[in-house]
């Protein structure tokens, strides 16, 4: 494939929730194209019938006893939050001015 358009770069940045300037997007366009060209060499390999490896260990469901144990207190959990309101994480409006 190699070669990625500026529109695609903008779309990927949106999917990744990254606010980037036009200059940054254009630098990334060049870099991503070069990287994709490099990694595209694996698309040439014959992997017919080869199963994918998602993980190096042959792990199946790992279960433990469902025993109660203490976790973080609300104060500990909220201690690093940028904004807190009445014991909860506080964020700006999710639906804009609609509500």
């Amino acid at each position: 494939m190699p070669g990625i358009s500026i529109e695609e770069v903008r779309q990927v940045a949106h999917l990744a929730r990254l606010q980037l300037s036009d200059d940054e997007l254009s630098v990334l366009q060049g870099e991503l194209s070069a990287l994709l060209e490099h990694v595209a060499r694996i698309t040439q390999l014959d992997t017919e019938g080869v199963p994918p490896t998602a993980h190096p260990l042959p792990l199946f469901n790992v279960l433990r006893l469902d025993e109660p144990r203490s976790g973080l207190t609300p104060a500990e959990a909220l201690a690093a939050a940028p904004a807190v309101d009445r014991g909860r994480f506080s964020v700006p409006s999710i639906l804009g001015d609609a509500l």
Binding site: V39, I42, V50
Partner: peptide, 10 residues
Amino acid sequence: QAQRVRTLVA
């Protein structure tokens, strides 16, 4: 494809 190549390496 990268995951299949991972299998080839292993």
